[in-house]
Amino acid sequence: MIINNLKLIREKKKISQSELAALLEVSRQTINGIEKNKYNPSLQLALKIAYYLNTPLEDIFQ
């Protein structure tokens, strides 16, 4: 099972779900679904998340 630290990292960087969704060009519901482990992001989306949060991919999804 993948450990998902997206919410923790996003909140630590003081970025809202809506702000991150806008940067990634996805819906806020997509971010919410990823954070609640209801949706697994594509590799492309996971890499974009890591880029915009300036955090290694391995720290977000373990």
Rank of each mutant, 00 (worst) to 15 (best):
R28S: 12
E58R: 14
P56I: 05
I60A: 01
T55F: 04
L47Y: 10
Y51P: 01
S27E: 06
I9N: 03
M1T: 11
E25V: 07
K13A: 12
T30A: 07
I60Y: 03
I60W: 03
F61Q: 02
L47C: 14
K12A: 14
I3Q: 12
S16Q: 05
L24S: 06
I3M: 12
Q29S: 12
T30H: 08
L43A: 12
I60K: 01
Q62R: 09
I15S: 01
A22V: 10
E35G: 01
Q44W: 10
P41E: 03
V26W: 03
E11L: 09
A21V: 03
L23R: 08
I34K: 01
T55V: 14
G33P: 01
I31S: 00
P56A: 12
K14W: 05
A46L: 08
S42A: 05
V26D: 01
M1K: 10
S18G: 12
E35K: 02
N32L: 10
K38M: 14
Q62Y: 12
N5V: 05
I2K: 12
K48P: 03
I2F: 11
I49T: 01
K7C: 08
I9C: 07
L53M: 07
T55Y: 05
E11F: 06
T30D: 05
Y39R: 09
N37D: 06
E25C: 14
I9S: 03
K13I: 06
K12E: 13
K7Y: 09
S27W: 03
K12R: 13
N40S: 14
M1R: 06
N5S: 07
Q44E: 14
A22H: 11
K7P: 03
E58S: 11
R10F: 05
N5K: 07
Q17W: 03
K13M: 13
M1L: 12
Q17S: 06
Q44G: 14
K38V: 12
D59F: 10
I49Q: 00
A22R: 15
F61E: 01
S42C: 07
E11A: 06
N4H: 05
L45E: 03
I2D: 06
N40K: 15
Y39Q: 09
Q17A: 08
M1N: 12
A22I: 11
P41K: 01
I49H: 00
P41C: 08
R28Y: 09
E11H: 07
E35C: 04
E11D: 08
N54W: 05
L23T: 06
P41H: 02
K13W: 08
A22P: 00
K38C: 14
A46C: 12
I49D: 00
N4Y: 05
G33H: 15
T30S: 06
A50I: 02
A50M: 04
K38L: 15
N4I: 05
I31Q: 00
E11G: 05
S18K: 12
L24V: 15
G33R: 15
Q62D: 09
Y51W: 11
S16A: 05
L20I: 04
N37I: 05
L24P: 00
K48C: 07
E19L: 08
E25A: 12
N4S: 05
I2M: 12
L53T: 03
F61R: 03
I60D: 00
E35Q: 00
I34L: 08
I3V: 13
L43K: 13
L43I: 12
N5F: 06
L47T: 11
E25W: 07
S27D: 13
E19Q: 15
Q44A: 13
A46S: 08
R10K: 02
P41S: 03
T55R: 04
D59N: 12
I31A: 00
L23Q: 10
L53N: 01
T55P: 03
L6H: 00
L23F: 14
N4G: 04
A50K: 02
E58M: 08
L8F: 13
K12Y: 09
N40T: 14
Q29I: 10
K12H: 09
I15M: 15
L47P: 00
D59P: 02
I3E: 09
S18C: 11
K12P: 01
L8Q: 14
T30M: 11
K7I: 05
T55D: 01
M1I: 14
K48M: 08
L43D: 07
R28H: 09
A50H: 01
F61S: 01
N5R: 08
A46N: 01
L47V: 12
G33I: 09
K14N: 11
G33Y: 14
D59Q: 13
R28D: 10
A50S: 09
L8V: 14
S27R: 07
I15E: 00
A46V: 06
L6A: 02
L57S: 04
P56M: 04
N54F: 05
N40A: 15
L43R: 14
A21P: 00
Q17I: 11
L45K: 01
R10T: 01
A50N: 01
E58I: 09
A21N: 02
Y51L: 08
Y39A: 07
M1G: 13
N40Q: 15
I31H: 01
Q29W: 12
E25L: 09
Y39D: 05
I49P: 00
L53Y: 01
L6Q: 02
S16H: 04
K36H: 13
L6P: 00
K38G: 06
K12D: 09
I9M: 06
A21H: 02
N32G: 08
A22G: 09
A50Q: 04
L47R: 12
I34M: 07
E19Y: 09
A21Y: 03
I34P: 01
S27H: 06
S42M: 05
A21L: 04
Q62W: 10
Y51E: 12
Q44M: 08
N32H: 10
T55W: 05
I2L: 12
I9W: 08
Q44N: 13
L47N: 12
K36L: 13
I34A: 01
N5Y: 07
N4L: 06
D59K: 10
E11V: 09
Y51D: 07
R10H: 01
K36Q: 15
I3C: 13
N5C: 10
P56Q: 06
R10Y: 04
L57C: 08
A22F: 08
A50F: 02
N5G: 06
E25D: 12
E25F: 09
V26F: 02
S16V: 04
L45R: 00
P56W: 05
I15D: 00
K48G: 06
A22Q: 13
N32R: 15
P41F: 07
I49S: 00
Y51N: 07
S42L: 04
R28M: 12
K7F: 06
L6V: 09
Q62F: 13
Q62K: 12
E19F: 08
I2A: 11
I60F: 05
I15K: 04
L45I: 07
F61N: 02
Q44T: 12
